[in-house]
Structures are given as C-alpha cells and as structure tokens.
Design a protein around this nucleic acid. Structure first.
Lengths: 241, 241
DNA sequence: GCATATCTGTGACGAGAATCACACATGTGC
DNA sequence: GCACATGTGTGATTCTCGTCACAGATATGC
C-alpha cells in the first residue's frame, strides 16, 4: 500500500485516536472486527471531494486524518459552509441512513485519510449490532442540533461583526469556559477570508474590513496564519444570542 | 370531561386523522393500547404555551387539533419562527429523546388539543416496541433535514423578497408540482405580518411593503385573511435556491 | 356598540453592507 | 528565483433595508 501525498497511512484509523464518544468507538471486539472487514481506506489530497451535494448517497466516510469542509450552494453560485469536520467524525450519515442524496458537498481542506463504508454493508452491520444503531440515532440528533444552531445564528444575528465574533469564539480552545478574561490559545487560521465569509454569510471584503477593525480595537492579533484572541470578554459582549 | 374553548374533545386523537406516515400511526394493536394508557389529553386555548425554550424537557406532545408555532429568541428579544406544526405532528421529540432542554418554544396559534407522553413512559414504550424506535430515528432525520433547509434558506437567500416568495410558495397547496402556471388554491393567512417577518428574518414594515409590491405586480391577491397566488411562475422565478 | 388593543400601510431618513475597482502581499510550482 | 495564481487591504459609490413616526384599519373584550 502506497502512501501518496506525503502522508503515512494510519492503520489504526478506527481506533478512535481523539475522543472516545465517536460513533464507532468502544465497540465490542466482534463489531470492530466486522467494521475492519467492510471498510475501505483511502488517502485524499487537499481539495479532494469526498462527495457532492445532490449526488446519490453511496455510504459514509469516517474521517481519520485531515479536515473537511461541508458546504451547500444555490443555483446562483452563492455558497455557504455549514460545518468544518475533524478527524473522528462521520460524514454523510443522514443521507446514507435515510437513503437521500447527499445534502452537502464534502471537500478536504487539508490532505488526509478516510474510511468508506458502503450503505448496504453499513445497514447490515447496524442490523447485526443493535446498540450501534442507537449510537447512530444519537448522532442524528446531534446533527439536528448543529443545524438548529445554524438557524439560530443565521436568523437571530444582525451584523456580520457579531457573526464573526461568534465564529472566532467557537474556534477558541481556551483554558476553560469559566475563564471569560483575556488571553487564549493561538488559533491556526486554515480558512481564507472568502471561506470565512461563506461561513457567516457575508462577503470577502467585509471579512477583511472586520479583521482590520478587530485588530485596531485590539480584540485579536494576527500573525501570518496564527490568530490570537486578545480580548475574549469584548468578543463575548458582541454576541447577543 | 369538559370541552373548554368551545371545541369538542377528540377521542380518536391517536388514530391518525390526516396522514398515515406519522410517528404513531399503523402500529400493532397492542402498541396502540399501550399508548392510550400512557398518554394524557388536554385542550389548549390560543396562545397557550406547550413548552418553552430552555425549559427542562418533560416529554413529547402529539398535536391532535389546532396549529402550533415553534420559535426561538435571542437574549435581545429578537425572535424567529422555525416551524408551523399541524395536527398529527410530534413536538419536543429531539429534546425528549436526547434529554436536553427544549430548544424551541411551542405556542398554539389556534385553540386545539394535544396528547402528552412523559419521557419515562415514552422511553419504556420505545424499548418495548423496537420498530417504533426506528420510526423515531426516521423522524429525527426529518427534523435534521428541516433544520438544514432552514440554514439553506437563511444563508443562501439574499433579499427579503426572495424569502417571502419562497414562503408563499411553501404555503401553496396547488394542483400539483408540474403545474407551474398561474392559478392556485386560496391560502388562509393565519399569521400577522409581524409573524411572517419572524419567519423570514426581516421586519414587519418590510413585509407590509413586500405585500404591497406583490399585489401591485399582480403576483398575489389578498382579500381579508385569504391570499391567492396569481402568478406562481413569477414567484418561482424569484427563488434561486 | 363603544373603548381599547392590535395590526396594517406608508413616508422620511440614515446606517451599513454589497459591489466594483485596483494595488499590494503571499504562496506555489518549475 | 522567477512567473503566475491566489489571497488580502482599502477606497468610492450605490442601494437595500432597518428604524422611527404616525394615521388608519381591524379585532377584541366588556
């Protein structure tokens, strides 16, 4: 097995490297064995498409390494990014389970690796391991809540400034929720301004201007692709959800 | 048993008056019997609240008669209506199943009747009747798709005019999808302009002006609380999703 | 049927974001 | 290291839509 795109192949890709509460984690050994049999692993370069909006759903992808952006577009070419997914997440689940076309497009934003599980094999697997089916229900419920949060953000937020503040805060992996004060961990900016605009439903220029504003007001600090939140409290004050 | 609010009590409230594909329809007799035992029925006047956003979830409501609006608000008082529910629908399912607080507020917009099923009884019932649990998963998936559609509408639609056109079309129960021509069934307007504004994320004044525009352009015709779509094709042309 | 509350229509005005245009910076591949 | 593609910053301009204000129209309750 080759390892294209300069990445080592991960053999333990289903062994839940990050968190313990992912869909296929902590399963009985027999189930894990079965999963290993029905999955197929592939490497993907940056900007590879795992699946495309409207395409007949074939199965689910379990992301092992790399990051994925999920997006949807109007016929007029306007695009919104609905979610960024990290290693461990399962993509295409709702569409596969309910046998509808993929509702979003999944594109790698950095090179990575994913396991594919075809629908038929997955359904059979779920029939065999009932408790995993329950996990699927929970995951679907999480999907719903995530989409619902999107509705709240898009529907209740007035200004692009507020949306950007909310987005930056959602990226913040600070020292804990109770710490409303200033400093925070640096954030690696993997998205372009255009993509950020697509996440908050505004234009690229507006995002540029907002970053200028935020820097001027010393809310954030940007150095290359690294962003540091300097005044988390002020950002929180901007968000009225 | 009294019948307040001038409405007769519906005894066959779980017998699926409208469609056959609702959650608790076409169940085996034993399951129906069990449901009858664990449900409790109540009448509600207009603007009664079945449950409130943020409130600890107690169980689900099966709407028998009347209509309900589901909404969520920001701390600043801005409100969006996420959905209007009709008789037959199950309210509060996601929150109850995943044991989270209700994510929306459910308010009667006309007097009606609903069956309440407490969480514990529901979960026990689902454990006993596994195929109903599957139906629940399907319903959750539908909830997800509905919320996802909301994201698309709010995120990809540019103008309030387009959103209103889309909303009116969604209310249209015309002679079939293939008929893109003019005439359509009259629509009973149950919402105020303020509420319509809350559905499409704009202001009351803008909705008023849009209706004026639409009337002037002979897209629609309004007489009292009755709205008729006169030029469906033109409305469709306005919607670019 | 009258009084009061709620809803609707419209004008004037201004803030703020989209659009267009272009210069400059930063990558990326060869 | 150079050329080209991609990304970023910023001005000038336009225009939509939110806000405020108020008058008239409908409901609603007593």
């Amino acid at each position: 097995m080759r390892a294209p795109y300069g990445l080592p192949i991960l053999d333990n890709c289903l062994s839940c490297p990050v968190r313990e509460d992912y869909l296929f984690c902590n399963l009985p050994p027999a189930a894990v064995q079965r999963l290993q049999e029905i999955k197929s692993t592939a490497m993907y370069p940056k900007s590879a498409l795992l699946f495309v909006e409207g395409q007949e759903s074939r199965g689910v992808f379990v992301l092992c390494a790399g990051r994925v952006k999920l997006s949807t577009s109007s016929s007029e070419g306007k695009t919104i990014i609905t979610k960024l997914s990290d290693a461990g997440e399962v993509l295409g689940l709702s569409a596969t389970i309910s046998n509808r076309p993929y509702e979003v497009t999944a594109e790698m934003i950095e090179p990575g690796q994913a396991n594919f599980i075809a629908r038929d094999a997955l359904l059979e697997f779920l029939r065999e391991y009932g408790d995993v089916a329950l996990r699927v229900a929970e995951q679907l419920s999480r999907n719903y809540y995530a989409a619902y949060e999107g509705v709240r953000t898009l529907g209740l937020t007035t200004s692009p400034a507020e949306k950007l503040a909310k987005l930056l805060l959602s990226w913040d992996t600070g020292p804990g929720p109770a710490n409303g004060s200033s400093g925070s961990m640096p954030i690696k900016l993997t998205l372009t301004h255009s993509e950020i605009a697509e996440m908050i439903g505004t234009t690229r220029e507006t995002v540029s201007r907002l970053f200028s504003d935020f820097k001027k007001k010393e809310l954030v600090q940007v150095k290359g692709a690294t962003l540091v939140i300097r005044d988390k409290a002020a950002l929180l004050r901007m968000v009225h959800l």
